[in-house]
């Protein structure tokens, strides 16, 4: 059973509460996402799971092994990719990979089937020094290095941060593949839209876990009506809606405004009416399905 159980874990750095009473269960062969902004405690949580930090209180069991007592055994079964750059910039792509393979007592050849998907992207640059790779490539190489010893449990700390949307898509495809060959993957990200690609996600903020749900549950559990509003003057619209007495939450969302009403029964017409009285034109209002970001913003507000 390659699962992870985190019970009542807290961690302080000086006066800062990095983690407060975290409880989390990651099941075997799950693609589990930890979503939250910088400084929410994701990295600390991952480092504790990877046996690199020791929690102040609470217990962490990875595959039934205690993260403090059995750290050596845990290190044998996990693949860990730190959030910051963790390659040797003066070594080439190939050399980095070979080095990590030998360190973990294996060869690139032996586990080529695992890294093949990722390595194909890198192959054209294999003689290039890692320091000269672009952001997306670096992350793919780091993932290759974390995979080269065929770990059972993969811990990836913000692998897609600073990576462009196309590379991010490719990255997530790779993660889905890894899951399909039986790996358990926990991955953190600051991008809310990536939540829907996970089996289950937890939202983190200020060292606390806001919720643990499947992406569908998050959206279903939102329980409120959310409207997408487009007008000819978005800034003014935002201002008027902020002043509206029935507004629960309103924010810009790309080129539209997302609006949440406190009333259970609310019709598009009523909103259109309100905006018209404020002399706004070209009003389009649609009831939409909330995104993870909508849910996060609302959860943040509630906290």
């Amino acid at each position: 059973m390659y699962d992870l159980k985190i019970s009542d874990v807290s961690k302080k750095f000086g006066d800062v509460n990095a983690l407060r009473d975290i409880n989390l269960d990651v099941e075997e062969n799950e693609l589990f996402g930890v979503i939250g902004p910088d400084g929410s405690g994701k990295t600390t949580l991952f480092r504790i799971a990877a046996t690199l930090l020791v929690q102040d209180t609470g217990k962490v069991k990875l595959s039934g092994l205690d993260n403090i007592k059995d750290y050596k055994k845990i290190r044998e079964i996990i693949g860990y990719m730190p959030g910051r750059f963790s390659l040797y910039p003066d070594l080439t792509v190939e050399e980095n990979l070979k080095f990590y393979a030998t360190v973990f007592g294996t060869t690139v050849k032996e586990n080529y089937d695992i890294i093949k998907d990722v390595y194909l992207h890198l192959e054209p640059f294999k003689k290039r020094r890692a320091g000269k790779l672009s952001g997306g490539m670096k992350q793919k190489l780091a993932l290759c290095c974390a995979l080269v010893h065929k770990p059972k449990f993969l811990i990836l700390d913000e692998p897609t941060t600073g990576v462009d949307p196309v590379s991010r898509n490719e990255f997530w495809e790779i993660l889905r593949n890894l899951k399909s060959i039986g790996m358990t993957v926990i991955v953190s990200t600051p991008y809310m839209d990536e939540a829907k690609l996970c089996d289950r996600v937890t939202l983190m903020q200020n060292g606390c876990i806001l919720s643990v749900q499947t992406p569908a549950e998050i959206i279903e559990g939102f329980g409120k009506k959310i409207f997408s509003i487009r007008t000819d003057a978005l800034t003014d619209t935002l201002k008027f809606l902020n002043e509206y007495k029935y507004t629960e939450n309103v924010f810009l969302y790309g080129d539209v405004i997302h609006y949440i009403d406190i009333r259970k029964e609310i019709k598009v017409d009523i909103l259109t009416q309100y905006l018209r009285t404020n002399e706004l034109k070209n009003i389009t209002i649609k009831e939409i399905e909330p995104s993870v970001e909508d849910c996060f913003l609302t959860l943040m507000r509630e906290k």
Partner: peptide, 13 residues
Amino acid sequence: DEPTGGVDPLTRR
């Protein structure tokens, strides 16, 4: 240059 990388959605707004 990528001023909002890793910033939470509320602060980004």
